[in-house]
Amino acid sequence: MSAPEPFEAHWRRQLADYRSEATDADWSAMERHLPPTPGGRSAWPYTLLLIAVVALAGWGLFAPATAPPLSSFPVEVPAPLGPTYNRPDRVPSLLPALPRDGISTAAGKAALSLPALPTLRLAAIGFVADTMPARRSARLASVVTELPSLGIPKVRSSSPDHLATIGKTLIVVPYAPSEAGSNPRYNGLYPRLRQPTKDNR
C-alpha cells in the first residue's frame, strides 16, 4: 500500500481525537431499543409498597371483627332462691271472673275490664256510572231451590216477551213455603212473584 497522503494523516489524527458527547435525545432513542426491565432494582420499592397497600386494604376489609373479651362485660349471677322466695300467684286468680255461659253481652265484655272498642263500619264504596248496565239486567237469573215436598211446582216464564227476543226460556221455580206467616218467595233481591190468584189460575 502506498504511503498515505499528508492530508490523510492529518485527517486520521483529527478523527482519532474527535469526541461527540451523547445528548439526551440520543439516549432516549437508545432507550426505545432496550427491552423493559421489570426486574430492575428501581422497581422494587414501588412493588413492595404496592403489595403492602393491597395487603393492608385486604386486611381491613376482610378481617373478622374482634369481639371484646368477656371480662369487659359485667356478669351478674342471680342469687339462689332462698326460703323467703315468694312464689307468684297463679295467673287465673288475678283475672276477673268470667260467666260460665261465655261472653255474649256488653256486660260480659265489661266484666273483662276491656275497653269497649269502637266499631266502625265502612260502607263499600262502589263506582257506579250511568252508562253501566244494571246488575239485574246483565243476565237472566235462574233460581233453583229445593223441590218442595208437596209436589212439582208450576213452571212458567216470567217475561215471555223478553225471552222470545233471545230465544230462551226462563224457568222460575218458586220458593217452597217454609214458615207460616212469612213470605218465603221474596228473597230481597228479585221482584216479588205474582201470587196465583183466582183470575190468572
Binding site: E21, A22, W27, T37, G39, S42
Partner: peptide, 25 residues
C-alpha cells in the same frame, strides 16, 4: 448484564463519544 437501566445509560454515555465517529466516517 443485570439489566439496570442507569448502568446502561452510564455505559452508553461513556462510550458514545468514541464510537460515534466510527459511524460518522
Amino acid at each position: 448484564l443485570r439489566g439496570e437501566r442507569r448502568a446502561q445509560e452510564q455505559f452508553y454515555r461513556s462510550h458514545f463519544p468514541k464510537l460515534l465517529p466510527i459511524c460518522l466516517r
